[in-house]
Design a protein around this nucleic acid. Structure first.
Lengths: 341, 341
DNA sequence: CGAGTGGTGTGAATCGATTCATGACAGGGT
DNA sequence: ACCCTGTCATGAATCGATTCACACCACTCG
């Protein structure tokens, strides 16, 4: 493979200056037709591909936005990524997808990468509870949009779903089913998502005139299936055994379901189960899972659009916005009311 | 936010030339200690971050490898990506993760992006049955490694799993369970994975002295859960009803499982079910799924390592290699032999 | 006829880091 | 005193595309 063909080679071949070639590519209307066609032909002939790095160097920033998610193994984030990617592509931007795996150290490491790449901006679901990473983004002048998390102050845009409402939806549904002994299986308690969903759950209890003590809390280390299996085992050991369980996400719920099933506990007969996120596998579980649906795809798309607006040509007037979407309860077999209440 | 601080600012601040700053960063041992420390201090003070685009421009290629997978919604590919990412990061390279969604057009579009970015190389699970995209990679001088697919000729490395063997493992297991009426639920028949697994299945039948006709084939449009649900419905309509089903991947199997369950067909009582990939959700299904495990993580890692070797400093002597890993059958409840054979 | 106008094309400067031939200087050996 | 060697630092050239002030030409209009 020989040397890369550059804009100069094209110019020479077409008998024009490099400036003209650049114009053909970026502002074709300013070039006379004959010339334009001659240049195009030379481009095809030589198989010229323009170098992004050279463009970037000149432009001062890249045409890439980064998406840093908490857990790529969670299909919810994959949906989110798909939405963001589509919006970015429509705007001619590339997406760099990264996984912090809920680890602040990983998150910090990516920060360096993003800074070196001069990414346009970052869509991020932060793993660091202290907010160090976010402040570092700010310090480096990297614009960011919070996803699945509400911005605290005025420092950035955010797109999130009303998790308090989501928690309330889930618990109201269970209460309507006649359940009184409830358990909330949450992940690491410091995650805002986990907190907010619990808060909503407590709110729903209060509405129904029940004490906060009616919601037993089971914490887990992570928000994944393995943790769900653990939690399931703990549920089995409880007495009196709860009749309804609300999980902070579907991965946990699937883990719980698996353990209960293996122990011969019927769902929903003995225990009703509600998850959160409505990932595709929730519907595909052998006992289809009732879940609180989040518009993941749309969230990703909106977040990307906000970032694009913030970093666009007319960047001048941009005000940080906080978009809050509404969750929706999807009722399936796992929480059908018991036949004999 | 002011102008980006560049290497010149650092040089000026530290009272040295730009060349020296560059040396401090890239070859610290060639710089006297006092100078080095002075420069480091200036870097910290100014918050200098070197520009990747400028480096790249000089170097002629980027420090990024691309990973183009068939379906990001399939956890198998997410595992694969994680493995590749880890290996790349250890070598100081970034990974750009892309999803062709089984669409050759998307695949072709990414090609352009990769060429402009001058990516180091690409790990790809091709969607295009004709191999156009691969040839285009070659034409652009972009090195690539096939993943989950065996290279046909000598033109590239590949890392794959022996799908013929995998198919045989699955069907041998079902035959041992006493099943004779088998169905193979495959996806788009042109995918090599789908073909090879079927071929292995047929081989296992032949070993047992059964005719190829003993394996009924059900094709689907895609390799996902929705297609699996479709296939499940078709299975229900068959008579005589099969007693064992082998699916080309776990997503299909989960879809089939769901439909069977909803129709009151017992798994494995009435129908035994085997999937492929052993994604985490296979074990987490309420009837844990027997599956053929592929070392996805390791595949990703090895592929990345091959690519890194191929494009490394000493690129001189590199011979294309074809690595073939062995699959492994993981038996779970969904295929336990019927109690009354 | 000269000035003005609009449509085209030019080429040098620029972005920021790397690299390398060159130079400055100190210390040791003869 | 002189040369040699080794250590450090320098600064100009380079990568490839973009941009912009300017030049050039053909025409039109007064």
């Amino acid at each position: 493979m020989g040397r890369m063909v550059g804009i100069k080679d094209v110019a020479q071949r077409a008998g024009v200056s490099v400036g003209t070639v650049s114009n053909v590519i970026n502002r074709p209307e300013t070039v006379a037709r004959a010339t334009r066609e001659r240049v195009q032909a030379a481009i095809e002939l030589l198989g010229y591909v323009r170098s992004e790095s050279a463009r970037q160097l000149r432009a001062g920033r890249s045409r890439i936005i980064a998406l840093l998610v908490l857990d790529m193994a969670n299909p919810f984030f994959v949906d989110l990524a798909t939405g963001a990617e589509r919006a970015a592509r429509e705007a001619g931007l590339g997406v760099m997808l990264c996984n912090s795996a809920q680890d602040p150290a990983e998150e910090a490491e990516y920060l360096g990468l993003f800074a070196e790449q001069r990414v346009r901006g970052v869509l991020v679901t932060p793993a660091d509870p202290e907010g160090h990473t976010l402040r570092a983004f700010g310090r480096h002048g990297i614009p960011y949009v919070l996803v699945d998390r509400t911005a605290a102050g005025e420092e950035s845009c955010s797109v999130s779903v009303d998790d308090v409402e989501g928690g309330a939806l889930a618990v109201r549904h269970l209460l309507e089913g006649g359940h009184r002994g409830l358990v909330y299986v949450g992940g690491p308690p410091h995650l805002p998502q986990v907190q907010d969903r619990r808060e909503g759950a407590l709110g729903a209890l209060a509405e129904a005139g029940l004490p906060a003590g009616a919601l037993v809390r089971v914490d887990t280390e992570r928000l994944d299936v393995a943790s769900g299996r653990d939690a399931g085992a703990r549920l089995l050991g409880m007495s009196p055994r709860p009749t309804a369980v609300f999980c902070a996400n579907d991965l946990l719920a699937l883990g719980v379901l698996q353990t209960l099933f293996a122990a011969g506990v019927s769902v929903p007969g003995d225990i009703a189960l509600v998850g959160y996120d409505d990932i595709e596998f929730a519907a595909a579980a052998a006992v289809p899972l009732t879940s609180v649906r989040q518009p993941a795809h749309r969230m990703g798309r909106m977040a990307a659009e906000l970032l694009i607006e913030e970093t666009g040509e007319d960047a001048g007037r941009h005000e940080h916005r906080r978009v809050v979407l509404r969750p929706e309860l999807v009722v399936r077999a796992s929480s059908m009311p018991p036949r004999h209440p």
